[in-house]
Design a protein around this nucleic acid. Structure first.
Length: 480
RNA sequence: CGGGAUGUAGCGCAGUCUGGUUAGCGUACCUGCUUUGGGAGCAGGGGGUCGUCGGUUCGAAUCCGACCAUCCCGACCA
């Protein structure tokens, strides 16, 4: 068995890699910057997908599939978009043994090819809105890859919608941001801050970008999901036009929004400890593991295992899925068996040994706190769901408190620098600067604007950097 | 693409400066016995073209050169 993860204070990235390793989540692929998501990691991704697909049913979005390869010329049709993405595109120049007339790019995102298709699909105001989502892989040749957080190829969900009016498109952008916030908070136990991106941080080609920002356990910020209001930029580039009720031609308003396997990275970096992964129950593919223990083979076979099976059936029925696993690693000693599940982040361990069997109980152990107590077989059906709920809430609370403790206010650049050096974390300021000011602040301090928080969008004050009055409330931090 | 570092068994490393039997250690893995409720003990065993290519030499993991790859700090970003 692997030993503890024992990171040094400054060795955060090694700790992160160790958690991924002991959790058996992912490996490096043979291609630089690419990731192999192992079954345990993929199961988490499937849980995330499930919650989003459920949400899409409520919001009226449907899934579809668009091509992996996009003609290079498509990218150039939107000026900001090509500038933002061209440097990181993988390009296919040969196929079928010949050089292609026009190179193809491996999609870094699908606004262009979907915009092209939408232009063919939309004629009348009756064709709108189009509410489509796609689950797929995309490729961005980033300079510095990092497992889950920034891999060359990553899995994601990209929603692309087209609307007849600006108001409706903006509403859609905010609606999806709220879906993100809710799922991240309620299921992944990530206390995110929804907000609007600054000019310097918004998506290439968007009028506005909204984001869910969250704090990792090293106090750095991570952008967990974004929702973009694209205005008519892509509609004009790809001629998504429709005839309105008055018979006039109009360009549509489009949106796009996405979350990626980065969320798994966020999960790891928010909740894990030095023993490995800690998964919030709602996102854990295995919510509890039953560990039958006995040195007596006959007793194991005839009494303990049948009881374990019975409990598994009952608990699965209560939880409404196949969420309970029975540990059958009988070649291992009990301590090793416990530890293997602990490292993988299984929220609850249910020990069924000879002692428990004799008294009709289970020894219940929480992954997040290590707390242990006994519950009778009769009561476990009621108590497990409550316990899982408690763990879920307590992980969210813990992460939220951590963020609050590590959020400070600054009114001047000096204060800003001092906080960043001494404490790190999020810094709340009033900011009224330009893209260029953002750049200067980054050069001076290493921190970037994360967002203008939506919850405090009414607040106004004096900019800590330019001194401009009536500036918006913003959060700055060092980020991934 | 700049600055720094590193490539030796699945993982973590020693050996390199000062070239010399069959390349070592910890851990993981396999077998056996003893153990068995928070991460085992003893014994035996398998696994390496020492990143790649070239050079120097009687002889290279070790010296020289080129290349490749990875990691960290930047720039870039979901």
């Amino acid at each position: 068995m692997a030993k503890n993860i024992t990171p040094k204070e400054q060795d955060y990235s090694q700790w992160y890699l160790d958690v991924i390793k002991v959790g058996e989540l992912a490996d490096y692929a043979p291609v630089r910057g690419c990731m192999v998501v192992r079954p345990t990691g993929y199961a988490i991704w499937e849980m995330i997908q499930k919650y989003f697909d459920d949400a899409f049913k409520e919001t009226g979005h449907v899934n579809a599939s668009f091509p992996l390869l996009i003609p290079q010329s498509f990218l150039s049709k939107e000026a900001e978009h090509v500038e933002g993405f061209a440097p990181e595109c993988a390009v296919v120049t040969h196929a079928g043994g010949e050089e292609l007339e026009e190179p193809l790019i491996v999609r870094p995102t699908s606004e262009t090819v979907i915009g092209y298709m939408y232009s063919k699909w939309v004629q009348s105001w009756r064709d709108l809105p189009i509410l489509i989502n796609q689950w797929c892989n995309v490729m961005r040749w980033e300079k510095r890859p990092r497992l889950f957080l920034r891999t060359s190829e990553f899995l994601w969900q990209e929603g692309h919608t087209a609307h007849a009016t600006k108001e409706e498109a903006i509403e859609e952008t905010k609606k999806m941001l709220e879906v993100y916030r809710r799922i991240m908070q309620d299921y992944l136990a990530l206390p995110v801050i929804p907000g609007e991106k600054t000019d310097g941080e918004k998506f290439p080609g968007a009028d506005n970008t909204y984001t869910c920002e969250t704090m990792m356990s090293d106090k750095k910020a991570l952008q967990a999901g974004t929702s973009h209001f694209l205005g008519q930029n892509f509609a004009k580039a790809f001629e998504i036009q429709f005839q309105n009720k008055d018979g006039e031609m109009e360009f549509a308003y489009t949106t796009s929004w996405g979350i990626s396997t980065r969320l798994i990275g966020a999960l790891i970096m928010t909740h894990s400890d030095n023993d490995g992964l800690i998964l919030p129950p709602k996102i854990a593919p295995t919510k509890a593991v039953i560990v039958p223990i006995s040195t007596n083979d006959e007793k194991m076979e005839k009494e303990i295992m049948p009881k374990a099976d019975e409990l598994k059936q009952k608990l699965n029925a209560v939880l409404g899925g196949r969420y309970i696993q029975i540990d059958t690693q009988f070649h291992m000693r009990p301590g090793d068996r416990f530890f293997s599940h602990l490292q993988k982040g299984v929220p609850v361990r249910l020990e069924l040994g000879e002692k428990e069997f004799a008294s009709g109980k289970l020894r219940v152990v929480r992954r997040d706190t290590g707390e242990k107590f006994d519950v009778t077989w009769a009561n476990i059906e009621q108590e497990l769901p409550v316990l899982l709920e408690n763990i879920q809430n307590s992980l969210l609370e813990k992460a939220r408190n951590f963020r609050i403790e590590n959020t400070h206010e600054a009114t001047t650049l000096e204060e800003f620098k001092e906080i960043l050096e001494k404490e790190g974390g999020f810094i709340e300021v009033y900011f009224g600067g330009t893209k260029e000011d953002e750049k200067k602040i980054k050069e001076l301090t290493g921190a970037t604007p994360r967002c203008y928080p939506l919850d405090e969008s009414e607040k106004r004050g004096k900019c800590f950097f330019t001194g401009a009055e009536n500036s918006r409330k913003a959060i700055f931090a060092k980020s991934y």
